[in-house]
Amino acid sequence: MAQVAPVEDNLGTRSGTAAKAIGPARTRRKFNYQSVIGTTPMILAAVGVFVICIIFSIIWSFTNSKLFPNFNFIGMAQYQRLWSTDRWLISVNNIWFFGIMSMIFNMGFGYLLAVFMDQRIRQEDLFRSIILYPFAMSLVVTGLVWQWMMDPNLGIQAAVRQWGWTSFQFAPLVKNETAIYGILIGGIWNGVGVTMAIMLAGLRGVDGEIWKAAKIDGIPTWRTYLFIVLPMMRGAIATAFILQCTGVVRVFDIVVAMTQGGPGISTQMPAIYVIQHITDRVNVGQGMAAATMMLMPVMILIALQYFLQWRAARKRSKAI
């Protein structure tokens, strides 16, 4: 019994020493001035460029600003004129068509390519780099490349006709009815790679036990990918979807590089409408009204994303 006391004393001493060591460690945290200094310019730029500029853009959309912004408010006149202009209505129809079709093909082809890459093929890094390369290119360069490829005198049509198929036609950019399809091809080629990368990351994050259970149950591989794995990739799907949506709303470079909004106004987009009215047509109020209308779907998507995140967090807290 005499030997037990020293052990207890030692334990008590050690625990007290540990408590003293842990206590000061928690209070030694210092304010990280370097992180504040490093992030302050970014915060100021974000507030100045995004918040303040958005507020003033909305304000000027209710004015009759021409060459320079002013504060002569005219109510909803700019919006009434906007929605009665054929150029704007065609722009809205074009972006809806381009957006829906590009998202369908980008999400579909992106997932198929991700499934292909998920088979642990040889030279996976090489193939992944090749597929991702168009996304790293400027949209202007992408547009110029596809403009050349769709040129009836220099591109694919001319090459195929030189091989003997003289009746072959592939020049969508020269006709009003097909020009939007040519832009769609260039947009899909540019955006499918990043969707593939996001989807592949989602596939690689699926628990391996899911695959083992599906094989034991005799479920075909394609059904596993489609009905079991795909619903489990909600985060990756939402990320790719929002990225595609924001890219569609601000589509400008590739259209200007390929068609300049033509032939005629057949490939006009809202971003082109905004730029033309602010610069060429010297109508800042009308351009800001169009820019505000472009901002609305982005704000709806952001609000929807935060709502879904809030609901998911609430469900997790209830489950705990």
Rank of each mutant, 00 (worst) to 15 (best):
A2R: 09
N10Y: 11
N10L: 10
L11K: 04
R14C: 08
T17D: 03
G23R: 13
P24Q: 13
A25H: 12
T27I: 13
R29N: 04
Y33M: 08
V36H: 05
V36C: 03
V36P: 10
T40N: 03
A45K: 04
V51A: 04
S57T: 15
I58P: 05
I59G: 00
S61E: 09
F62C: 02
S65R: 00
G75F: 00
A77M: 15
A77W: 13
Y79W: 08
S84I: 11
W88P: 12
L89H: 11
N93H: 08
I100A: 11
M101C: 06
S102Q: 04
M103D: 08
I104M: 01
N106G: 10
N106E: 15
G108W: 05
A114I: 13
V115T: 12
F116E: 00
R120C: 14
I121S: 03
Q123F: 15
L126C: 07
S129Y: 05
L132P: 10
L132I: 14
L132A: 14
F135P: 09
F135W: 12
V141E: 01
G143L: 02
L144A: 01
M150Y: 03
G155E: 11
A159P: 12
W165S: 13
S167A: 03
F170E: 00
L173P: 01
N176I: 07
N176Q: 13
I180Q: 06
I180W: 03
I180P: 07
Y181F: 09
G186M: 06
G186A: 14
G186K: 01
M199K: 05
A201R: 03
R204K: 01
R204E: 04
G205M: 03
I210H: 02
A213S: 15
K215E: 11
I219Q: 07
T221C: 11
W222Q: 12
W222R: 09
L226N: 04
M232Q: 15
A236S: 15
A236W: 02
A238Y: 08
T239H: 12
A240P: 11
A240F: 09
F241A: 15
T246R: 07
V248P: 03
R250K: 05
V251P: 05
V251H: 02
G262T: 02
I265H: 06
M269V: 15
P270K: 07
Q276V: 13
H277L: 11
T279S: 12
R281T: 14
V282M: 01
M288T: 11
V298N: 10
Q305F: 03
Q305P: 01
F307N: 07
L308E: 00
R311S: 08
K315D: 06
K318D: 01
A319H: 02
